[in-house]
Amino acid sequence: MLTGYHVAVIGGDARQIEIIRRLNEWNAIVYLAGFDQLNESFTEAIDLDVDSKQVEKLDAIILPVAGTDDQGRIDGIFTNRLIQLDESWLKNTPEHCTVFTGITNPYLNKLTDKVNRTLIPLMDRDDVAIYNSIPTVEGTLLLIIQHTDFTIHGSQVIILGLGRVGMGLARTFHQLGAEVSVGVRSTKSAARVYEMGLTPINMNDLKTENMECDILINTVPHLVVDSLIIKQLPSHALIVDLASKPGGTDFKFAEKRGIKAILAPGLPGIVAPKTAGRIIADVVSHLLVSQVRKETEDE
Rank of each mutant, 00 (worst) to 15 (best):
M1Q: 04
T3P: 00
T3D: 00
V7A: 03
V9F: 11
D13G: 08
A14N: 14
E18A: 11
E18Q: 15
I20R: 03
R22T: 11
L23A: 09
N27A: 13
V30T: 13
Q37V: 03
Q37N: 02
S41R: 09
F42N: 09
I46C: 03
D47F: 15
D47Y: 07
D49N: 14
K53N: 10
V55A: 10
K57R: 15
I61L: 04
I61S: 07
I62V: 05
V65M: 13
G67R: 05
G67K: 04
D69W: 10
D70I: 08
Q71W: 13
Q71E: 15
I74T: 09
F78C: 03
N80R: 13
R81K: 12
D86V: 08
L90K: 03
K91Q: 08
N92Q: 14
N92H: 09
H96F: 07
C97D: 02
P106V: 05
P106T: 02
K110L: 13
L111P: 02
D113A: 15
K114S: 13
K114I: 05
V115S: 03
R117C: 01
T118W: 13
M123C: 07
V128K: 12
V128F: 13
A129T: 06
N132V: 03
S133K: 06
P135T: 12
P135C: 03
P135K: 11
T136I: 06
V137A: 15
E138Q: 13
T140C: 11
T140H: 10
I145D: 01
Q146E: 12
Q146S: 07
Q146C: 00
D149V: 02
D149A: 03
T151L: 09
H153I: 03
G154Q: 03
Q156S: 05
G161M: 00
G161I: 04
G161N: 01
L162K: 12
R164I: 06
V165T: 10
G166R: 06
M167V: 07
T172K: 14
H174V: 00
E179R: 13
V180L: 12
V182W: 07
R185I: 05
S189C: 02
A191F: 11
E195Y: 11
M196R: 04
G197W: 12
P200N: 12
N202Y: 10
N202V: 11
M203V: 07
D205C: 14
L206K: 02
K207G: 01
T208E: 09
T208M: 09
E212Q: 15
D214S: 10
I217A: 06
P221R: 12
H222Y: 13
L223C: 01
L228E: 08
I230Y: 07
K231L: 05
Q232E: 10
P234L: 04
A237M: 09
A237Q: 02
L238C: 02
I239G: 06
V240A: 05
L242K: 04
L242C: 00
K245D: 00
G247D: 05
F253D: 02
A254M: 01
E255F: 04
K256R: 08
R257N: 11
G258M: 15
K260P: 01
A261H: 00
I262G: 08
G266T: 02
G266W: 01
P268A: 01
A272M: 05
P273V: 01
K274W: 09
K274A: 04
T275Q: 06
G277Q: 15
R278V: 00
D282Q: 09
S290P: 00
S290K: 14
E295R: 14
